[in-house]
Amino acid sequence: MAAKSQKERDDKAAAKRIEMDEKELRHRCRRGTRDKLEELMAWHGITEQAEAIQLLIWNAHALGPEGSAPALAIPRHEYALPESVARTLYQQGAKEAASMDRFEQLPNS
Protein backbone atom coordinates (compact mmCIF):
# COMPACT_ATOMS: atom_id res chain seq x y z
CA MET A 1 0.00 0.00 0.00
CA ALA A 2 1.41 3.35 -1.04
CA ALA A 3 1.67 6.22 1.41
CA LYS A 4 -1.12 8.75 1.17
CA SER A 5 -0.36 12.12 -0.34
CA GLN A 6 -0.76 15.31 1.69
CA LYS A 7 -3.91 16.15 -0.29
CA GLU A 8 -5.44 12.75 0.52
CA ARG A 9 -4.67 13.22 4.23
CA ASP A 10 -6.11 16.75 4.16
CA ASP A 11 -9.24 15.54 2.36
CA LYS A 12 -9.73 12.73 4.91
CA ALA A 13 -9.28 15.16 7.82
CA ALA A 14 -11.75 17.62 6.25
CA ALA A 15 -14.31 14.83 5.73
CA LYS A 16 -13.93 13.75 9.34
CA ARG A 17 -14.44 17.35 10.56
CA ILE A 18 -17.67 17.53 8.56
CA GLU A 19 -18.82 14.12 9.81
CA MET A 20 -18.17 15.09 13.43
CA ASP A 21 -19.71 18.59 12.95
CA GLU A 22 -16.43 20.08 14.14
CA LYS A 23 -16.19 23.88 14.09
CA GLU A 24 -13.15 26.00 14.75
CA LEU A 25 -13.59 28.54 17.53
CA ARG A 26 -11.42 31.63 17.44
CA HIS A 27 -11.07 34.07 20.26
CA ARG A 28 -8.92 37.18 20.54
CA CYS A 29 -7.78 38.16 23.99
CA ARG A 30 -5.31 40.47 25.64
CA ARG A 31 -2.11 39.61 27.44
CA GLY A 32 -3.70 39.36 30.90
CA THR A 33 -6.22 36.76 29.75
CA ARG A 34 -3.53 34.76 27.97
CA ASP A 35 -1.42 34.89 31.14
CA LYS A 36 -4.31 33.43 33.16
CA LEU A 37 -4.80 30.62 30.63
CA GLU A 38 -1.06 29.87 30.57
CA GLU A 39 -1.01 29.76 34.37
CA LEU A 40 -3.97 27.35 34.44
CA MET A 41 -2.23 25.19 31.85
CA ALA A 42 1.01 25.15 33.86
CA TRP A 43 -0.83 24.21 37.07
CA HIS A 44 -2.25 21.13 35.38
CA GLY A 45 0.51 20.18 32.95
CA ILE A 46 -1.52 21.00 29.85
CA THR A 47 0.53 22.06 26.83
CA GLU A 48 -2.18 22.70 24.23
CA GLN A 49 -4.41 25.77 24.55
CA ALA A 50 -7.26 24.08 22.68
CA GLU A 51 -7.17 21.18 25.13
CA ALA A 52 -7.23 23.53 28.12
CA ILE A 53 -10.15 25.53 26.76
CA GLN A 54 -12.08 22.39 25.88
CA LEU A 55 -11.53 20.96 29.37
CA LEU A 56 -12.62 24.24 30.96
CA ILE A 57 -15.84 24.20 28.94
CA TRP A 58 -16.63 20.56 29.70
CA ASN A 59 -15.80 20.87 33.41
CA ALA A 60 -17.77 24.12 33.83
CA HIS A 61 -20.74 22.53 32.10
CA ALA A 62 -20.51 19.46 34.35
CA LEU A 63 -20.95 21.75 37.36
CA GLY A 64 -24.45 22.68 36.16
CA PRO A 65 -26.10 26.09 36.10
CA GLU A 66 -25.52 26.99 39.76
CA GLY A 67 -22.10 25.40 40.11
CA SER A 68 -20.70 27.04 37.00
CA ALA A 69 -22.17 30.47 37.80
CA PRO A 70 -19.14 31.73 39.80
CA ALA A 71 -16.76 30.72 37.01
CA LEU A 72 -18.84 32.59 34.44
CA ALA A 73 -19.62 35.66 36.54
CA ILE A 74 -18.29 38.87 35.08
CA PRO A 75 -15.69 40.28 37.48
CA ARG A 76 -16.70 43.71 38.73
CA HIS A 77 -14.15 46.15 40.00
CA GLU A 78 -15.28 47.95 43.10
CA TYR A 79 -13.97 51.40 43.83
CA ALA A 80 -14.15 52.92 47.28
CA LEU A 81 -14.20 56.70 47.11
CA PRO A 82 -11.57 58.09 49.47
CA GLU A 83 -13.05 60.32 52.18
CA SER A 84 -10.93 63.29 51.06
CA VAL A 85 -12.29 63.03 47.49
CA ALA A 86 -15.87 62.68 48.77
CA ARG A 87 -15.39 65.75 50.95
CA THR A 88 -13.98 67.77 48.03
CA LEU A 89 -16.86 66.74 45.77
CA TYR A 90 -19.37 67.65 48.46
CA GLN A 91 -17.76 71.05 49.03
CA GLN A 92 -17.68 71.83 45.31
CA GLY A 93 -21.30 70.73 44.94
CA ALA A 94 -22.36 72.89 47.88
CA LYS A 95 -20.49 75.86 46.41
CA GLU A 96 -22.19 75.35 43.03
CA ALA A 97 -25.62 74.98 44.69
CA ALA A 98 -25.09 78.21 46.66
CA SER A 99 -24.10 80.01 43.48
CA MET A 100 -27.23 78.76 41.73
CA ASP A 101 -29.38 79.84 44.69
CA ARG A 102 -27.89 83.36 44.56
CA PHE A 103 -28.51 83.56 40.82
CA GLU A 104 -32.16 82.51 41.26
CA GLN A 105 -32.66 85.16 43.97
CA LEU A 106 -31.49 88.05 41.75
CA PRO A 107 -34.31 90.40 40.78
CA ASN A 108 -35.34 90.20 37.14
CA SER A 109 -34.15 93.12 35.06
Rank of each mutant, 00 (worst) to 15 (best):
M1F: 11
M1V: 06
A2W: 15
Q6H: 07
K7H: 10
K7I: 04
E8F: 05
K12T: 13
A14H: 03
A14G: 03
K16V: 09
I18P: 14
I18S: 13
E19S: 13
E19M: 11
M20S: 06
M20A: 10
K23G: 09
E24Y: 06
E24G: 09
R26K: 10
R26E: 12
R26H: 08
R28K: 11
R28L: 05
C29N: 05
C29S: 08
R30D: 08
R30G: 07
R31E: 03
R31H: 04
G32M: 14
K36N: 03
K36T: 05
L37Q: 00
L37I: 01
L37E: 00
L37H: 00
L37G: 01
L40M: 06
L40S: 10
M41I: 01
A42S: 04
W43V: 14
G45T: 00
T47R: 01
T47L: 02
E48Y: 05
E48H: 13
E48K: 14
E48T: 05
Q49K: 07
Q49E: 15
A52F: 00
I53Q: 00
I53P: 02
I53Y: 00
I53L: 03
Q54D: 07
L55K: 13
L56S: 02
N59V: 04
A60T: 07
A60R: 13
H61T: 04
H61P: 14
A62W: 03
A62N: 02
E66D: 09
S68I: 04
A69W: 01
A69I: 06
A71P: 15
L72K: 01
L72E: 00
L72N: 05
I74Q: 09
P75Y: 04
R76D: 11
H77N: 07
H77G: 13
E78D: 03
Y79V: 07
Y79R: 05
A80G: 06
A80T: 06
L81W: 07
P82F: 01
E83T: 07
E83G: 10
E83Q: 14
S84P: 10
V85L: 14
A86K: 01
L89G: 14
Y90M: 05
Y90N: 08
Y90P: 14
Q92V: 09
A94N: 08
K95Q: 08
K95H: 09
K95T: 15
K95P: 07
E96R: 11
E96H: 13
E96A: 15
E96D: 10
A97S: 14
S99N: 15
S99E: 03
S99W: 09
M100D: 06
D101F: 12
R102E: 04
E104F: 12
Q105D: 11
L106T: 02
L106Y: 02
P107E: 00
S109D: 12
S109W: 09
